[in-house]
Write a protein that binds this DNA or RNA. Structure first.
Lengths: 151, 151
DNA sequence: TTAATTGCAAACACTTTGCACGCTA
DNA sequence: TAGCGTGCAAAGTGTTTGCAATTAA
């Protein structure tokens, strides 16, 4: 496992002090399989006997976002933010409306579209966010989301 | 102006009782030029001397969402929801990072992509949400968002 | 040593809920 | 009149902030 040591340099390179909480949270996000909430980070660290305060979690996340080491997402109809390690790969998300699991899609169909839009609108386009919604194979198997079951 | 009378039938057709607050909010959203927050609705109605409680605004919005008469959005880095009249046109949004103004785009480049994705992932795709970010012509003129001014 | 980071508690902003009263169908 | 809709106050969530103590560089 070469997993655990990488991050310390990343912090230095971004001009951040190297603290235990920062590396812990950054490693946690790097190893997470999908975007997670501040509370999930907090609880998970507690389970691992890492003593940390929820406000420190938020402050750390904010710092890491500023330095673009992580990304923040808002999901429609969820009132809490989700955070994800920024591995600098342009991604989109497939959100299951049944189990709420978020899968990432690395293929992006929109490269050319941004240029068309710049020409049509006069905006300087800096990025985009695409989320696709549906039901995953497992939820379909369970019958979740099979049209409207009833009202 | 034929603007003001349409909505009463819409409520009936959705199986909702016809109340003043519901028609007022629905008309307000129908006539809004962009998605608005619950508080904006509340304040705007107060200015027009409509007496309403903020909890009624939220409850009404929830009801209208259930009946799909309106849509709810979450914008990244904003911690409040925005609501919009559902005119049943598939739309995307162009969000200005400078002035935060939201412009809608009625052209959708993703029709075919959803089918590709269904084949690749096994998901049953029910919809998608695309937001494009950038700087509007006016903000560019003012020099807002001209790369990084400094760090 | 010095400034940045943290914990704690308290404050905040947005949203939801319980209950009694009021109004639509 | 029966039951849904509303106002009010209070509680919930998720997030932020002030301040004193702690820690990294």
């Amino acid at each position: 496992m070469e997993k655990d040591k990488i991050d310390e340099n990343i912090l230095k390179e971004s001009g951040l002090k190297n603290t235990k909480h920062r590396t812990t949270i950054l490693e946690f996000l790097r190893d997470a399989s999908q975007p997670v909430s501040a509370e999930q980070i907090y609880c998970d660290l507690k389970e691992k006997n890492v003593s940390i305060n929820i406000s420190t979690v938020y402050r750390t996340l904010e710092t890491l976002i500023d330095k673009e080491l992580i990304l923040k997402h808002s999901v429609t109809n969820e009132n809490k933010a989700l955070f994800e390690y920024n591995n600098r790969v342009h991604k989109h998300y497939l959100v299951c409306m049944g189990c709420k699991k978020i899968t990432s899609i690395e293929n992006c169909p929109l490269h050319d579209y941004e240029k068309v839009l710049e020409n049509n609108t006069g905006f300087r386009i800096t990025g985009h966010k695409l989320d696709v919604y549906g039901y995953c194979p497992e939820c379909q198997r369970k019958g979740i989301g099979k049209q409207n079951i009833e009202d």
